[in-house]
C-alpha cells in the first residue's frame, strides 16, 4: 500500500532504494510533506516566545515597583516619631503604632523561644537519628501537608486549643503558641535542608574517633549546619511577623491603648493594626495603614536581607 503512495510523484529514484528504506524516504518524497524548515516562521515564534516570557518577568517586576510606589507615596509623609510612639486613636491624624510594634516584637520573641527548639529538634531527629521506617515516612508526608494548611485553619486550632482548652485567653502567649505551630513545618523543612548539606565525611570522622551519635551531632553536624539553619529560622520568623489571619482568629485586639507587659496580657500586632486601618473607608486611616506598612516592610526587608546575605556567604564558604 504505502509503496504505491511513495512512488507517486516520484523524483526518479529506483524502486530498490524505496524498498530498502521506505519510512525514511516517505518523509522526503511525498509532495504534501516535503521538508521545509520554515525558518522565517520559526524565528518569528522564537522572538514572540522570548517576548512573552520577558513580559511575564516584567509583570513581576512592575508589580513590585507599583506596590512600593503606592505605599511610599501614601505613607512616607505620615511617618514620624509620633506615629511610632503614639497609641491608636479614633482621630486618624493622632493614631500611632506603639502597641502594635511592641506586640509584634514580643510575639516574635516568644515564637522564637517556642518554635526554634522544637523545630530544629524535630529536624535533627528526622535527618540524623530516624531510620527509614514507615513512621518516618508518615512524619515526612505529615510535615509536607502541614506546611500547606491554610494559616486561618491554624488560627482555628489556636482558638480551640490555646484560648479555650488551655485557657490562655486572648493573650500574647496564645498568639505565640499558635504562630509557633504555623511556622514549625517551615523551620523543620529548612533545617533539614541545611543538615543535608553537611558532608557524610564529617559524621564518619567523628564517629570513627569514638564519639557517640549525639556527640557527633552536637559538636560537629550542628555547628556546620548552623548558618543554614539560622537562615531558615530567620525567614520563617519573618513570616510570623507578617501573618495576620491566625491572630485575628484567636482574638488579638485591634484597639489597644497600652503595651503588653506579661505573656498573659492582651496584645495586638502590626499586621492587625494595618488590616484594621485598611478596612476603614476614611482616607486618613488608609494613609496611616500605608505608614504602618512602611514600618512593617522596613523591618521585614532588613531581617530578610540579613538572612539572604548570610545564606550567600554560607554557600560560598561551603564549597566542599
Amino acid at each position: 500500500m504505502s509503496e504505491i503512495d511513495l512512488t507517486q510523484g516520484s523524483t526518479g529514484l529506483s524502486n530498490q532504494v524505496i524498498n530498502r528504506a521506505p519510512d525514511l524516504q516517505g518523509q522526503f518524497l511525498s509532495g504534501s510533506t516535503l521538508w521545509r524548515p520554515r525558518r522565517g516562521r520559526r524565528k518569528f515564534f522564537g522572538v514572540l516566545f522570548l517576548l512573552l516570557t520577558l513580559l511575564a518577568t516584567l509583570i513581576g517586576v512592575a508589580a513590585l515597583i507599583v506596590l512600593l510606589e503606592s505605599v511610599i507615596s501614601q505613607g512616607w509623609s505620615r511617618l514620624s516619631w509620633d506615629f511610632i510612639n503614639n497609641f491608636p486613636s479614633r482621630i486618624a491624624s493622632r493614631a500611632g503604632i506603639k502597641a502594635a510594634l511592641v506586640g509584634s516584637v514580643y510575639l516574635t520573641g516568644l515564637v522564637a523561644v517556642i518554635a526554634i527548639p522544637v523545630g530544629v529538634g524535630a529536624a535533627v531527629y528526622l535527618e540524623e537519628f530516624a531510620a527509614d521506617t514507615r513512621w518516618r515516612r508518615i512524619i515526612d508526608i505529615n510535615i509536607a501537608n502541614l506546611a500547606g494548611v491554610p494559616s486561618i485553619v491554624y488560627g482555628m486550632l489556636g482558638l480551640m486549643l490555646f484560648v479555650r482548652i488551655c485557657a490562655f485567653g486572648h493573650s500574647l502567649l496564645a498568639g505565640a503558641c499558635t504562630m509557633s505551630l504555623l511556622i514549625l513545618p517551615v523551620i523543620i523543612v529548612t533545617s533539614r535542608e541545611a543538615l543535608k548539606t553537611v558532608p557524610q565525611g564529617v559524621r564518619l570522622a567523628a564517629l570513627g574517633l569514638g564519639a557517640t551519635k549525639w556527640q557527633t551531632v552536637r559538636a560537629h553536624v550542628l555547628p556546620t549546619a548552623l548558618p543554614g539553619i539560622l537562615t531558615g529560622v530567620i525567614l520563617s520568623l519573618s513570616r510570623a511577623v507578617g501573618e495576620t489571619a491566625p491572630l485575628l482568629m484567636i482574638g488579638a485586639l485591634s484597639y489597644m491603648a497600652f503595651v503588653p507587659e506579661s505573656p498573659m496580657d492582651d496584645f495586638t500586632v502590626l499586621p492587625i493594626q494595618i488590616f484594621n486601618w485598611s478596612s476603614r473607608p476614611q482616607d486618613e486611616f488608609r494613609v496611616a495603614a500605608a505608614a504602618g506598612i512602611l514600618v512593617l516592610m522596613g523591618i521585614l526587608l532588613t531581617v530578610n536581607s540579613c538572612a539572604i546575605v548570610m545564606r550567600m556567604r554560607y554557600q560560598r564558604k561551603m564549597q566542599w
Binding site: G60, A63, L64, L67, V71, L235, S238, V241, G242, E243, T244, A245, P271, I274, F275, S278, I293, L296, M297, L300, L301, N304
Partner: peptide, 8 residues
C-alpha cells in the same frame, strides 16, 4: 515579593 505580608 514572596516576603510581602498578605495584608499588604
Amino acid at each position: 515579593l514572596a516576603g510581602i505580608p498578605t495584608v499588604v
